Computed example of a mutant assay.
Amino acid sequence: MTAESVLFLALGAAAGGFINGLAGTGTALFALGFYLLVLDPLRAVAIVATMSVLTGLQGLWVVRHAISQQVPRLMRFLLPGVIGVPLGVMLLASIDARTLRFVIAALLIVYGVYFGFRAALPAFARRTPVWDGVIGFVGGVMGGAASVSGAIPAMWVSLRPWPKAETRAVLQPYNVVLLGLTAALLAWRGAFDATALTALAITVPVGIAVAQIGIFTFRRLTDTGFRRLLILLCLAMGVGILGQEVL
């Protein structure tokens, strides 16, 4: 592996690790572009999924108490999401994943622009267990069909006036489990060959180390600051997905 390849892998791991530590989602958006410069798409997605899981475990520890206090809420998102992933993979044969990613990008951009620059953030406090399950399922399907499992759940939870730890206690385990499932499916398809394992040896230590900087920043954000960050991250995800498809 060339020095240039190592550099791009390390830069992607640093960018993805930081945003994972900071927000608990968005790793692929910030890392995948670097990985695709030196790896084929199958290996790149496998590596970013694996790195997201390993760096995400640190974030799980940070909000472990919030997770234990809100297990039923988490399960409302997570269990339908797990069901949705293989269904999304099956849909790949009958839908245009590129068009789907364009639609998701447009939703994220409109949402991010509308809510991200308002003086007052939305305060949708009413309990919606059925809709939570629907959002979790849709996120799983989107992950299987277009590799954007975290986009719709991130939009939904950023509407809720929950403390930042409770918000992350949904997003972080949701992403860790769904991306772990994605990594397992890719491993079954033979994505982790010698080249991929070498890339993992570079990216995982960098991602884990830089994620600590993101976690350090997360601890110092207010609840309102974290919600605004998450909304602006939705905008960034939309622009990033759109840019990937256009370029």
Rank of each mutant, 00 (worst) to 15 (best):
A125G: 08
V82N: 02
R126Q: 07
A105K: 03
G112V: 13
I135P: 14
V53K: 02
L60K: 08
Y114E: 13
A66P: 00
F137P: 13
G116Y: 10
V53H: 01
M51A: 04
V130F: 10
P80H: 02
H65M: 06
V82F: 06
A44H: 09
V48T: 08
T55L: 08
F124R: 11
G88K: 06
W61V: 05
A105G: 06
G112H: 09
V113K: 04
W61Y: 14
R43M: 12
H65G: 06
H65R: 12
A119T: 15
I83P: 01
L121N: 11
L121M: 13
G116S: 15
T128K: 07
A46V: 06
G112Q: 11
L87M: 12
A123N: 14
Q69K: 09
A105C: 07
I83Q: 00
L121Q: 12
V113H: 04
A105P: 05
V138H: 05
G116F: 11
D96V: 03
L121Y: 05
M51G: 07
V89R: 04
Y114S: 15
I104G: 10
V103K: 09
P86S: 04
A93Y: 13
V48P: 01
M75N: 05
M90S: 11
G81S: 07
L54S: 10
T99P: 10
A49H: 09
I109S: 13
V89G: 01
G116C: 15
L91Y: 00
A66T: 03
A106M: 07
P122C: 02
I67E: 00
A106W: 08
T99M: 15
R98T: 15
I109N: 12
P72I: 02
G116R: 13
V48R: 01
